[in-house]
């Protein structure tokens, strides 16, 4: 096989794999606008009517509200914990940083069911009832690493001379942190928070074990698909969830990109 033929083969394979990754997403997006209430391809006609009826559905609304509350609170907590972890690790030896990063990653690297049942047993044993609080605790635990990695990556690129300059000018370490480091980290923290929000907003496996009777939006979708009920509404909600998680991700990428150019 000569060089150009090999090149064509590699490109073809790469594009095929990319299509495999992206086309299913397009299918979901199209079905949200399906006028029919049965799921048959090709779709029977374009309509926005299911958007209207989904928005009017009380169950969907309350699930959305719970998801936003959980993701919002977990993101806030994770932003504090993740930023503290990154600041504290910065400057320590690379062995310690590696071990610390590994520890922080464990909650998302470990199988979801394991984290879920472990937290379920923990809360039961501690006598904590399952509700919004347990959900927020669980989500914070696996969201922290997202903020941490973003801030850590930014800290690594941050020039120490900036802080030294501030201290030469008479700033205390605390003033230097407040006026130099923190503003420079703002973008990284923000983009980490957006990713954490997207992660939490979409999580279903750990949530089933820690939600009790609360129904987050993913739990509502999961239940509806499983029982084969409200399928037109599922199409719309799935579309909306994708839109909601994509916006922060794209924004987060942009923020991270612009922060790294500074």
């Amino acid at each position: 096989m000569n060089g150009s033929l090999r090149n064509i083969a590699v490109w073809t394979a790469a594009l095929a794999v990319l299509a495999f990754l992206l086309l299913p997403l397009c299918v979901v997006l199209i079905y949200a606008f399906d006028a029919a209430s049965v799921q048959v391809w090709p779709i029977r006609g374009l309509s926005l009517k299911w958007f209207v009826s989904t928005w009017a559905d009380e169950e969907v609304r309350s699930a959305l509200l719970i998801s936003v509350e959980v993701a919002g609170l977990a993101t806030l907590l994770a932003s504090v914990l993740g930023t503290l972890a990154a600041l504290g690790m910065n400057g320590l030896s690379s062995r310690i940083v590696q071990a610390g990063s590994f520890f922080l990653t464990l909650p998302i690297a470990m199988p979801g069911v394991l984290t879920g049942i472990a937290m379920n047993s923990f809360f039961t044993t501690c006598g904590l009832p399952f509700n919004l609080v347990t959900l927020v605790i669980a989500h914070t635990t696996f969201c922290t690493v997202v903020v941490y990695s973003n801030v850590m990556a930014r800290l690594r690129r941050l020039s120490p001379t900036l802080l030294e300059a501030a201290q030469d000018m008479g700033a205390t370490p605390f003033q230097g942190f407040l006026t130099v480091t923190l503003p420079l980290l703002g973008g990284a923290i923000m983009s980490g928070m957006l990713l954490a929000f997207a992660l939490s907003f979409d999580e279903v496996i750990v949530s089933t074990f820690t939600a009790g009777s609360e129904t987050t939006l993913p739990l509502w979708i999961f239940g509806a698909i499983r029982l084969g009920q409200h399928m037109p509404e599922v199409n719309v909600v799935v579309f909306a969830v994708m839109a909601v998680t994509l916006v922060p991700v794209v924004m987060g990428q942009k923020l991270a990109a612009s922060a790294s150019r500074e």
Partner: peptide, 27 residues
């Protein structure tokens, strides 16, 4: 970004997509 996009979009949505694709009257 295109490769990372599916990872950050809803897992349930992506599973659901395959039900629509593989179903008897599917894509």
């Amino acid at each position: 970004v295109l490769v990372a996009l599916p990872l950050w979009s809803s897992m349930l949505a992506r599973i659901y997509a395959w039900r629509l694709i593989l179903g008897h009257d599917g894509v």
